[in-house]
Design a protein around this nucleic acid. Sequence first.
DNA 1: GGGATTTGGTCTAGATTTGGTCCGATCGAC
DNA 2: GTCGATCGGACCAAATCTAGACCAAATCCC
Lengths: 239, 239
Amino acid sequence: MFDHDPENATERPPMPTASAARIAADLRAAIEQGVYADQDRLPPERQLADHFGASRGTVREALRRLEDTNMVVRKVGSGTFVRYRAGELEGDIAKATSPIELIDVRFGIEPQMVRLATVNANGHDIENLDHALQRVCAARDPETFTDADEAFHLALADCTRNPLMKCLYSQLNEVRGHSQWSKMKDKILDAARISEYNRQHRKLFDAIAARDSNAAVEHIVRHLKTAKDHLLGATEELL
Amino acid sequence: MFDHDPENATERPPMPTASAARIAADLRAAIEQGVYADQDRLPPERQLADHFGASRGTVREALRRLEDTNMVVRKVGSGTFVRYRAGELEGDIAKATSPIELIDVRFGIEPQMVRLATVNANGHDIENLDHALQRVCAARDPETFTDADEAFHLALADCTRNPLMKCLYSQLNEVRGHSQWSKMKDKILDAARISEYNRQHRKLFDAIAARDSNAAVEHIVRHLKTAKDHLLGATEELL
DNA sequence: GGGATTTGGTCTAGATTTGGTCCGATCGAC
DNA sequence: GTCGATCGGACCAAATCTAGACCAAATCCC
């Protein structure tokens, strides 16, 4: 577990020696690797001090850093307990995200994205968005529509001219493609709904092209509400 | 890496082995190749001097050059620490994102995050958030505050119980840590502003704990507006 | 219940480590 | 010789680490 070796200090010259920092790093690694699970109690400070060959004060300094990052909770008379929910960010984020959770996140990002797009898009961006709109409007089957819809929303992200927004949204879009949503889309997407979505897409585009920020936000919110309603409807059908 | 050979020094009269330039180059290469990671502490100057077979003054000259190129930071009584963002994925996005763009994205995500947190957090989550709040409220200097603030917002993301939200926000938070914001924080964060932020943090927590979604959203929006105002103010000062 | 033990919280005094600074000496190159 | 780089010290101030003590809360054990 703690393969700390005091002799390392005299080993190769380029060995980063540091007491509190190194102890904190070792403990952090142990926790992240699951040596200590969530809610587990760490060894007492005095025992850790002995193990690391450091004084108790140094160990306490290391533990204080772990506590500052909410990784650990210390209780007088009881001990130091791990507070780390391992495995929640592990693996494929797409598999860990449900369609309804995806919509919840989209409700946060997309209105602001549309607002920024309305303000920041230049003529070239609008052209690209228009092009994407033509494609999605031409789609008739669920498969084509899903792809084109994804491209449309990515073009929308481009319109914000905000690198961080583009980065985050492209990740969200990937989850969207891989998520369980895609298994439901055949249930959700019929011709009527596709054309409904496309009417909303067009209104959204018109608002952005007209630089009408409020209208654009209103349309994207309505779009998301529609999608959520369809999703919940489909969920009920699955029950 | 450090293939210095003392015997060569006595063999050849011209000894390019021990010059400040060469030592600086070696250390730079070691850092770039990951021998020393970001935030790691380099060996002490005296130890480096011994290792390179050079005097401490020469090593200091080499370190001075690394410091001039912002590769390391030196702290009296503590050591020399690596500051080098090994071009990670978010490293690029962090460099491409301005503080104001970061705020723009936060304006989208955080209100929704708070809304979801208010609805989805369980007692354990609230406890964690409370713990993080105590930490951030206890912070007095910009350095501690920044770390604790980051932990608080991550705990907030945990409260949503939404894996996608947590994933996206943790990325946003990394950009926040690496972004040019960190260079401005000393200009922005004085004691008065820190306590102002903390008042907002507390109100936000109280609203979430009381499951008052609207109040929580209102507080986070006010918080972001305050941050944006301070940012724009600091920007003006820089002009 | 009650005392003993364990555990984290706090404090202190002193030793150690570490970068910052200064000085004079040495050596090679121009 | 002069100049620049290096060397080998010495000393300083800041940060850190150590070692020990005592406390209060929690827990254990009889």
